[in-house]
Amino acid sequence: MDPASSPALKTDARLMLIVEHKKKNVFVTQLEEHREQTEEHVQHIPVITESSSGLLDTGVHTLQTTLVLKKRSEVDAVDTRLMDTRQEVQRSMKILQQRRAQLQQRQTETKHRAARFEKFVEENEVKRRRALKKFQTEREQNQVKEQEKAELFKQLQDLQARRQYLQERVNKYKIFEEFLMKTLDLLPDKYVGYGTDLVTPIIRRYETLTVSREDLLQQLSSLTDEMKSSQNHMESLRQQHSTFKLMTNQELSERQTQLDQLKEKNKQLEMMLHMHLGQSRDQVEEVGNILIAVKNLSEQCYLSHYGALDLMDTSSMMDMIKEFIVEKADMERRATRLVASSGATVKRTTPKKTPSRSGALTAPKTLP
């Protein structure tokens, strides 16, 4: 390596040789003013001024060899780490390839499983639909069977009720049969009415009673229908009455509300009326006081040409008072004017004061 091509030797501040300027060795044996004169006779110590590169020029080859070895060892270490890293990457790639193969195999297995599961789900769905359809069919059949069973049970109940009714009727009319049989047993063998002639009137009477019973049942049914219609009419009337009652109660509540509002309004009007009456009473008292004052003033300011005081109205009294006040004011102005004019005349006619012989002032003569 060329020494000139290594910038580390030129720029490294640690390899720079720093030389300080030492002070001159001067013995102080004389005054300061004589030192400058003898400075040229002082012997200076030589100082090394060569650069650091010059000083290290002898050991450059040793330093370069060391640096090269050091760099080579660093490169070898880097290569070793690189090889280790490359081997590790290769191992990682192998592991990744193995994992990728395993993952692809798992994905393939998962797809097969998913396909089998979908097929299984479709089969189950078909089975479910088939079972649901069969269930709906059986349920409809069961409903039909239940309806038939309910109808048959109802018919059975009707038949049992009919049988019980007939049994009760047989038990009811059995006494008549026994009576007839006993009557037939008691009759002689050669009785004229023995045979059908005795039973025929009874049968006819039964038929008559049966017809009467049917008529009565029809009348009862007609009366029952009429009673039901009457009850329905009464129920409708009751509903109408309840509706009318509700409407009447609602209207009554509204009227009650209006009444309460009117009462409240009347209370407010009464309060306002009382307040107004109080104000009116005060105004009346004030007006009465004013009228009394006007009357008193009219008595003091009475003028004869207005007539009698008792016959005057309030406006006439006030006009009279006004006229009286105007006359008094005019009279006062005239009197003031006359007093002022007489004072001015007295001042003009009064002579000046002259001193007497004794030196005292004599009083002026007053005009008569």
Rank of each mutant, 00 (worst) to 15 (best):
residue 76 D to K: 14
residue 55 L to F: 04
residue 79 D to N: 11
residue 306 Y to H: 13
residue 360 A to F: 10
residue 139 R to W: 02
residue 64 Q to Y: 03
residue 266 N to S: 14
residue 233 H to E: 09
residue 341 S to L: 07
residue 18 I to Y: 01
residue 237 L to Q: 15
residue 215 D to V: 10
residue 367 L to N: 15
residue 94 K to E: 14
residue 125 E to I: 07
residue 17 L to H: 02
residue 133 K to Q: 07
residue 216 L to A: 08
residue 147 Q to D: 10
residue 199 V to D: 00
residue 243 T to Q: 04
residue 174 K to T: 06
residue 117 F to A: 08
residue 211 V to F: 05
residue 121 V to A: 04
residue 286 E to H: 09
residue 268 Q to C: 13
residue 316 S to D: 03
residue 275 M to T: 02
residue 346 V to S: 01
residue 170 V to S: 05
residue 27 F to D: 06
residue 74 E to Q: 11
residue 271 M to D: 03
residue 122 E to Q: 12
residue 71 K to I: 15
residue 175 I to P: 15
residue 200 T to K: 07
residue 290 I to R: 01
residue 236 S to N: 12
residue 178 E to G: 13
residue 324 F to P: 01
residue 65 T to F: 08
residue 102 Q to S: 06
residue 300 Q to A: 14
residue 71 K to F: 04
residue 220 L to N: 11
residue 191 Y to D: 14
residue 22 K to L: 09
residue 210 T to F: 05
residue 177 E to T: 02
residue 218 Q to V: 10
residue 45 I to G: 08
residue 366 T to M: 12
residue 339 V to F: 10
residue 177 E to F: 15
residue 51 S to G: 09
residue 188 P to E: 07
residue 59 G to H: 05
residue 363 A to Q: 05
residue 97 Q to I: 12
residue 304 S to H: 04
residue 182 K to S: 11
residue 4 A to L: 09
residue 144 V to H: 05
residue 107 Q to A: 10
residue 228 K to F: 04
residue 344 A to P: 03
residue 94 K to H: 08
residue 100 R to N: 11
residue 14 R to Q: 08
residue 45 I to C: 14
residue 364 P to I: 15
residue 186 L to N: 13
residue 283 Q to P: 10
residue 173 Y to V: 04
residue 333 R to A: 12
residue 363 A to C: 14
residue 43 Q to K: 04
residue 1 M to N: 09
residue 294 V to S: 00
residue 263 K to P: 04
residue 198 L to A: 01
residue 22 K to C: 13
residue 236 S to F: 11
residue 176 F to L: 02
residue 360 A to C: 06
residue 55 L to W: 06
residue 15 L to I: 01
residue 237 L to M: 13
residue 307 G to N: 00
residue 263 K to T: 08
residue 335 A to C: 15
residue 37 Q to D: 03
residue 295 K to Q: 10
residue 343 G to I: 15
residue 101 A to P: 00
residue 232 N to A: 12
residue 44 H to K: 07
residue 86 R to V: 13
